[in-house]
Amino acid sequence: MRLSATTEELVQVVTVLDDRIDAAVALEFKENVRQITETAPETVILDLSAVVFIDSSGLGAIVATMKYLAPERTLVLAGLTAPVDRVFRLTRMDSVFSLYPTLSHALHDQL
C-alpha cells in the first residue's frame, strides 16, 4: 500500500497511490496511514482520487484511521471516484465524513 504525504501549515494531504483499498491491504493501509500521520497537523485530507475500488474492509480501515486521529485531528476525504463514493453512501458513512469531489475543493474549504 503506497502513500505519499505533503504538509502545509495546518493541513496534511495523504495521497493513496494504489487503486484498491480492499481486504488484502486493509491492515497495511491502516498501519501506513498511522505512521505517515504521526506528526500531522489538525486536518488530514486523504486524497482517494486514484482509488477505484473499496470494500467493507477498506471502509473499516478508513473509519479506524478517523478514530485514531480524533479528537485532536480531523480526517477529511477528497477525490472520491464514483465506486468509492457509492460505498460511502450505501453504508451511510457519507454522513460521518466530510467528502469532497476533488482535492482542490477540500483544500479550498480547509485553508
Partner: peptide, 8 residues
C-alpha cells in the same frame, strides 16, 4: 466517532 463500527 469513537463508537463507530470498523467492520460488519
Amino acid at each position: 466517532a469513537q463508537s463507530l463500527p470498523e467492520g460488519g
